[in-house]
Write a protein that binds this DNA or RNA. Structure first.
Length: 879
DNA sequence: GCAGGCACGC
DNA sequence: GACGTACGTGCCTGCT
């Protein structure tokens, strides 16, 4: 027997689910696409996994159906379909047409009825029917050859109901779903049911009597006076509800099953559709080759020369310059090729040709020759390792893209170029491969790829600069971030010296203590196990030792520090585990991790700062991350002893801004009391405690100060009442009250918070002092969580982002000072509110004044900025 | 090679 | 009431 597989999809239901499950994506034309996107992913999954031979998508038509005749309030009180969703329905239809999937809607009937009718048609043994929907009503159609897959969470997770599974889950036969609804009603369809009967009662009644009719015939036998009354009074309503919930199986159809065949479609139609909607990832999945073909076609059009000798005339200004490496860890990695585009032509240079050419090197160093680059910092570092200086950077495509909208998940060249319509550039992954297989292609291919990149950089300079100007971000770009790239590049090249022997010594010490702790823990547990495995640890603690599991994770028991701390008094093993974790972290991440990246010949570490990543404007640091070296606990803080000056007779200076975020908040909110704290140079947490608890300075207890500090922390980082409750170990309600009291004490802060959210909702973004932007489309989301998160982000980003602006400005100013002031001192690191320098002894005193002065005057606020600068032999001592 | 759990800094 | 709650990086385990 030939098995035919029919898939029936409830179009409205799935589109709704997708719409609410996904954030409100839109493409460059401003068209919302999240529902279509979700629908498409689900459709592709169905096609791939179910391999249907026949397929149909049913839609609801019009506003009224035959059910409205029975009950005019049917589906009353429903929220109007959001326009952002309605406008996507035509796109869903286009999608189905592209796949040549039949769709059907019928006046007076709902999608359910159409699906039911077709499912009934396909009752013969040769048919296997699978229904996709988010609507539990359809479960009534489940039978031996019909399954119903309900969307569970999001859109891609479904649960497939067979008669057996339905029985297991609810103890019901498919037909009883209708009785169920008749009894309990359905608020979303405005079906009344019997008031006072919910899921539990309905299930109980049906288990006993089978159907609504039998329940109503046997009211006498039902326990509970109230329940009897209710059933008696609502007999008719119950029967009507059952009627409404019953799927109609006789919808007049003008097509039959044979018309629903699926499989013959033109993939170019689908590709076309995906392209229009900018479904890049789906496109790659659907037709990976298609994309490459097209790109290569365009690349062929481009004429360029491979130079073996560079003439001065070819180095006109301005020029787009691409310097390529394969390794994302670009320190000391080999340049694989260089491309140049300017008004004289398009050129590719092998690294040898370029680096051996004095003409080229002189051009790089010449500040009057303007360079347009992608990732200027990387270029500075790459040439820097070759002993070649790069100046005159006038444009950085990466930085421009980041400043215009930091939220894009990728600022890879090919993505930016596509987003900004700058022609076609292949993705590096396609050209070089990925992972272990990543390698340089033959020269001709590489040259083409790099020249395309240079051309795109050249072409995009003007339009992106214009966009920056429209956003009032050109100064941010040109006067702050671009010069900062060069400062950061220099910092990365300089590196920071590390006392390797000291780290090794600390590591040996740690190893010894760890193995002792491990023994103790195994002994206390009565068996040996891997303490580093949360899974095994959880089994020991919560099963073998029967400690109370306080929190669960997706996969099992939580063993995080806050859980363990709550268990501390209950078993001796807990303290040992906490200690083991602490030392283990130090050893693996900081001792072993740092030792791995020390450069052999110089004993230095060269981190990379990512200047185009965070949503707030902060920097990040990788390979290694030097922005999270321990400080809180003395044990870890000792790691900092290994960070020393690179030359004899030099010192480390660490200069940090005191409470910079709260000062920024005082400035932008204009709150008098908060400003007072800083104008009088008070301890801000004590001041907050005084204001919030209405006490005098000497009446502030340590608990009060601790609470005030946590609230200040929450304000700065935009945490929720839930977050505050976690950090203070209090209830959510108490945390909310705290926040309320804080706002009463600082009314202008409250006013700022309200206004910034409102402004952001209207404009779509928030901005910092120096016009850095963050777009927050989710402020208008109907999803409470997404919206709340966006609101806290709106309040917090101008604070944290302005602080980031300020220290960046200070870094640029310090960069100029170091360049022009005849100093030997060097800037080494930035840790968000702190700058680390190495300074020769003879400069220390003067330089300390300069640092403080430059940092405190980086910008002018309504409150003073305060910097604490300390000197020491190591980073540890500079405290 | 990837996801999840955990922990470090600001 | 709301299924997840500052960000970013990196280590380890345990699975594919």
């Amino acid at each position: 027997m030939i098995l035919k597989k029919l898939v029936l999809i409830d179009g409205n239901s799935i589109a709704y689910r997708a719409f609410f499950a996904l954030p409100l994506l839109n493409n460059d034309k401003g068209v919302y696409t999240n529902a279509v996107y979700g629908f498409t992913t689900m459709l592709m999954k169905i096609i791939e996994e179910d391999k249907p031979t026949h397929m149909l998508v049913a839609f609801d038509a019009g506003k009224t159906t035959f059910r409205h005749k029975t009950f005019s309030e049917y589906k009353g009180g429903r929220q109007k379909t959001p326009p952002e969703l309605s406008e996507q329905f035509p796109l869903v239809r286009e999608l189905l047409d592209a796949f040549q999937i039949k769709r059907f809607e019928a006046e007076n009937y709902e999608a359910d009825d159409i699906i039911g009718t077709f499912a009934k048609e396909a009752a013969g043994e040769e048919w296997q029917v699978k229904i996709y929907t988010g609507d539990k009503d359809l479960l009534q159609l489940v039978s031996d050859n019909v399954t119903v897959s309900l969307t569970k969470k999001g859109i891609s997770q479904v649960e497939e109901y067979t008669p057996a599974f339905l029985h297991e889950k609810y103890g019901l036969e498919p037909k009883q779903i209708i009785d169920m609804k008749g009894l309990m009603g359905d608020s979303s369809d405005n079906i009344p049911g019997v008031p006072g009967v919910g899921e539990k009662t309905a299930l109980k009644l049906l288990k006993e009597f089978g159907t609504i009719e039998k329940v109503l015939d046997s009211i006498e036998q039902i326990s509970g006076k109230k329940m009897k009354e209710r059933l008696e009074e609502n007999k008719e309503q119950a029967m009507m509800s059952k009627d409404l919930a019953t799927i109609f199986l006789e919808v007049p159809l003008d097509m039959d099953l044979n018309d629903l065949g699926f499989g013959e479609y033109e993939s170019k139609d689908v590709v076309q559709f995906f392209k229009e909607l900018e479904f890049k990832s789906l496109l790659e999945k659907f037709a990976p080759d298609e994309q490459m073909d097209e790109v290569q076609e365009k690349v062929e059009d481009l004429q360029f020369e491979i130079l073996t000798d560079i003439k001065k005339e070819q180095l006109s200004s301005p020029a787009a310059l691409i310097v390529e490496v394969l390794d994302e860890h670009y320190h000391q990695s080999e340049i694989i090729g260089i491309a140049l585009v300017n008004e004289t032509g398009r050129y590719y240079l092998s690294p040898e040709t370029a680096l051996q050419s004095e003409v080229f090197k002189a051009w790089l160093k010449d500040e009057t020759k303007k360079k347009w680059i992608f990732d200027a910092k990387r270029a500075v570092v790459l040439f820097g390792w070759q002993g070649v200086e790069l100046t005159g950077v006038e444009f950085d495509l990466l930085m421009a893209s980041y400043l215009l909208d930091p939220s894009h998940s990728s600022h890879d060249m090919d993505d930016i170029v596509q987003r900004k319509n700058g022609g076609y550039v292949q993705s590096d992954e396609v050209v070089y491969g990925k992972g272990a297989k990543r390698k340089a292609p033959e020269e001709e291919v590489l040259a083409e790829h790099l020249v395309r990149k240079a051309q795109a950089t050249f072409d995009l300079k003007e339009p992106l600069e214009n966009e920056l100007k429209e956003n009032e971000q050109f100064e941010l770009f040109y006067d702050l971030e671009l010069p900062l790239s060069l400062v950061l590049g220099q910092m990365e090249l300089t590196g920071v010296k590390v006392d390797k022997a000291q780290l090794v010594q600390m590591g040996e010490d740690l190893e010894e203590r760890l193995s002792k702790l491990e023994q103790d823990i195994h002994e206390l547990a009565g068996q040996s196990f891997n303490i580093n495995s949360p899974k095994q640890l959880g089994e020991i603690l919560f099963e073998k030792l029967e400690l109370p599991p306080i929190k669960k994770t997706k996969t099992g028991y939580s063993t995080s520090a806050d859980v363990l701390e709550k268990l501390a008094g209950k078993h001796e093993i807990i303290d040992h585990i906490l200690h083991y974790r602490q030392l283990g972290k130090l050893n693996s991440t900081y001792i072993e991790g740092l030792l791995k990246v020390i450069k052999e010949d110089s004993s230095k570490i060269h981190t990379r700062f990512n200047q185009a990543l965070t949503q707030t404007g902060r920097l990040s640091s990788t390979d290694p991350n030097l922005q999270n070296i321990p400080i809180r606990l003395e044990e870890g803080r000792k790691i900092r002893k290994a960070f020393i000056a690179s030359e004899k007779g030099w010192k480390i200076i660490a200069a940090d801004y005191s409470q910079i975020e709260l000062r920024v908040l005082a400035h932008i909110s204009g709150d008098e009391k908060l400003k007072e704290a800083f104008q009088e140079d008070m301890d801000v947490h004590t001041k907050t405690a005084m204001d919030v608890f209405h006490v005098k300075e000497d009446e502030v207890t340590s608990t009060m100060r601790r609470s005030a500090k946590a609230v200040n922390f929450g304000i700065v980082y935009g945490i929720s009442d839930y977050g505050l409750s976690q950090s203070l170990n209090i209830t959510r309600k108490e945390a909310a009250e705290f926040i309320e009291r804080y706002f009463q004490s600082y009314p202008k802060v409250k006013q700022y918070m309200d206004e910034i959210v409102e402004e952001a909702r209207e404009s779509g973004y928030v901005a910092t002092l120096l016009h850095r932007r963050r777009y927050l489309p989710e402020l208008t989301s109907r999803n409470f969580n997404l919206r709340s998160f966006a609101e806290r982000t709106a309040m917090n980003t101008p604070i944290q982002g302005t602080a980031a602006d300020i220290i960046k400005k200070a870094m640029v100013d310090m960069g100029n000072e170091l360049e022009g002031g005849n100093w030997k001192a060097r800037l080494l690191l930035q840790v968000h509110d702190e700058l680390i320098f190495e300074v020769p002894d003879e400069e220390v005193n003067d330089f300390l004044k300069v640092i403080t002065d430059v940092m405190e005057n980086a910008v002018e606020l309504d409150v003073p900025l305060k910097v604490d600068a300390e000197i020491g032999e190591s980073w540890y001592d500079a405290k």
